[in-house]
Design a protein around this nucleic acid. Sequence first.
DNA 1: CATGAAAAAGTTCACCA
DNA 2: TGGTGAACTTTTTCATG
Lengths: 153, 153
Amino acid sequence: MLDLDEIDLKILNELQEDARISHQVLSERVGLSPSPCSRRIRILESKGIITGYSAHIDERKLGFAMNIFVSVKLAHQVDTGLVSFERAIRLCPEVVDCWLMTGNRDYLLRVSVRDLDEFEHFLTARLTRIDGVSSIESSIPIRRVKGGMSRLT
Amino acid sequence: MLDLDEIDLKILNELQEDARISHQVLSERVGLSPSPCSRRIRILESKGIITGYSAHIDERKLGFAMNIFVSVKLAHQVDTGLVSFERAIRLCPEVVDCWLMTGNRDYLLRVSVRDLDEFEHFLTARLTRIDGVSSIESSIPIRRVKGGMSRLT
DNA sequence: CATGAAAAAGTTCACCA
DNA sequence: TGGTGAACTTTTTCATG
């Protein structure tokens, strides 16, 4: 079903580092000519191994200088909690990352804000108003050491 | 210095959702013609607002089905701890994300592994062997609810 | 900033090895 | 599967309004 060889992994690696590289340059780097190269790309896309392409945007340059991790626990009695909580979270522009954790109704969020004032507003005007939210814990990172790329090897 | 208008934000949004969109289609969507559109893109790149383009790869399809968050605390006495720890982390293919947290010598990692066996190997053969690592706590997410995009608004 | 045309570059396809 | 070359599309640049 998958059958990825070394060349496919090289292609994935190159496209992960620069999605707008031309097929010509890409084909030279992976040691192929352009045609089979673009064929392989289309196969990788159709198999769902490549799921899309996106521009990387420097959030700090747009004014979102702060990241904050927030652990959220939902109240035990709320039965439709997960679905409605997740729907609410997806509508928050501040939340850039959200994981459902093992353990009961535990979420880990990463929120992106301009400053602490905006974070306080996010907490009071949004997060605490979502139905079923019972406890919140925040921690503040200083900087990102590594990130943004998928594991390939 | 920045001077981003509505159209620039639309461009960023479109490129974040599909970095390989053609300039023609993009220009239609943002309500411009292709020439000024590509000029704006180049400006956004040169200002460092767009920092790159990358393919999204489905890690699960490559066999990396599990994510694990790992909190690491470094021993207090290790002075060159941060630099050498970070260098070691950058060399671990399993670590897809790493944040330096506030609080003393605290890191939050996200590691991507095939299964618990590989995770155990990562812990015993890699992480615990890095100089200065004093305590480790793991938590396992069930699924990602939201993620992968930068905040724009 | 829009338009339109021309030049350059990139992509895709049929066909052969 | 990979290579070649032709047909096609897209991108870039420029003159003009």
